[in-house]
């Protein structure tokens, strides 16, 4: 049991949790925006995966992680554009289109990867880390909190920013209204379709950056199907957070820990089949849902297309 409490184990666990949790945080925040506006974005898994692929290619060709994130955002937005045209503007079934986009992105990225990289499996160089001077030297806490890629700090900043946007700005209120009572928003002279379109595109960008983070900072390479359900976990996070960005972050950290257990156990010298560890985050989702789902609140207009004449 000593190995469990050793600083090396705890550091590996928490460090891994932050790395694994950041994509979940970005996806969860993105999904939260879409859900607030009344769009259930099942295609988020496809947006993440497209972001992971485009992000990896961009980072690999330019050698810059920031270009990777920009590419990831572009990849996610590309999928989100389809979703916003078909589901928001034309009002098609969000679930059918969501599944279609996820399957299409899975197939397309795997195909492209096969023709470009399957012989070489190139890796990215080591991640540039921003160490906060002084603080990063503290044992355990230092590396866990103060030595990450700058994007991690930006993601945490985004939590604060969104919390302010949701509560204190017209934009946030419009978003909320688009999911709660779209007719009222329309009557107040704000376009429901436009609001929802922006929401879905933002989701695409955030999910894409999350995917790109996974491929570039997390793994250093692209593997087909590498998101492995992270987008769907993002949906759960958004569901349970009841519209609060801070809760998404806490959830992402929790699931990040369960994802990071594999590496941490290896560091500590435990031999546990990886499949058991793979079960952890999903088992956790189910347990959390059984315990807390009673309290999850979703917007009444979630999943319903807005048709003006039906108002």
């Amino acid at each position: 049991m000593d190995a469990i409490l050793s600083p090396a184990f705890v550091t590996a666990l928490l460090l891994g949790a932050v790395t694994a949790g950041t994509p979940l945080l970005l996806a969860g925040l993105g999904e939260q925006i879409a859900e607030k506006a009344g769009v259930l974005n099942i295609g988020i898994e496809g947006m993440m995966l497209m972001g992971a692929y485009v992000g990896f290619v961009a980072a690999f060709t330019t050698g810059s992680f920031w270009m990777g994130f920009a590419g990831g955002a572009a990849g996610g937005v590309a999928v989100a554009v389809l979703m916003s045209i078909l589901c928001v503007r034309l009002g098609m079934n969000q679930i059918v289109i969501g599944i279609a986009l996820t399957l299409g992105a899975e197939g397309l990225t795997a195909l492209l990867h096969h023709f470009q990289f399957s012989r070489s499996y190139p890796r990215l160089p080591d991640v540039p880390v921003l160490e906060i001077p002084g603080l990063a030297a503290i044992p355990v806490i230092g590396p866990v909190l103060f030595a990450h890629h700058p994007l991690v700090y930006l993601a945490v900043g985004l939590v604060v920013l969104l919390g302010w946007l949701f509560r204190r700005t017209n934009m946030g209120l419009n978003l909320e209204a688009a999911g709660q009572k779209p007719g009222a928003l329309d009557a107040a002279g704000v376009g429901v379709i436009a609001t929802r379109t922006w929401a879905v595109l933002t989701t695409g960008a955030l999910a894409g950056i999350g995917g790109a983070f996974m491929a570039t900072v997390g793994a250093g390479l692209f593997v087909p199907f590498m998101t492995g359900g992270a987008g769907f976990i993002g949906i759960v996070l958004a569901m349970l957070a009841r519209g609060r960005p801070l809760w998404v972050m806490l959830g992402a950290l929790l699931f990040g820990i369960s994802l990071a257990l594999t590496t941490a156990f290896q560091v500590a010298g435990f031999n546990i089949p990886t499949d058991v560890v793979h079960m952890l985050p999903f088992a956790m989702v189910i347990v959390v849902l059984v315990l807390f789902a009673r309290h999850s609140v979703l917007p009444p207009a979630l999943g319903l297309p807005y048709v003006r004449s039906d108002r």
């Binding site: 389809l82 078909l86 034309l90 009002g91 098609m92 079934n93 059918v96 289109i97 599944i99 279609a100 986009l101 996820t102 399957l103 299409g104 992105a105 899975e106 197939g107 397309l108 795997a110 195909l111 096969h114 087909p224």
Partner: peptide
Amino acid sequence: FFVLVLVGLLLLFLAVVEY
């Protein structure tokens, strides 16, 4: 993986034609 692409496209066009 190409079959996955086809399935995604099929679903997409199903929804479009339905619309």
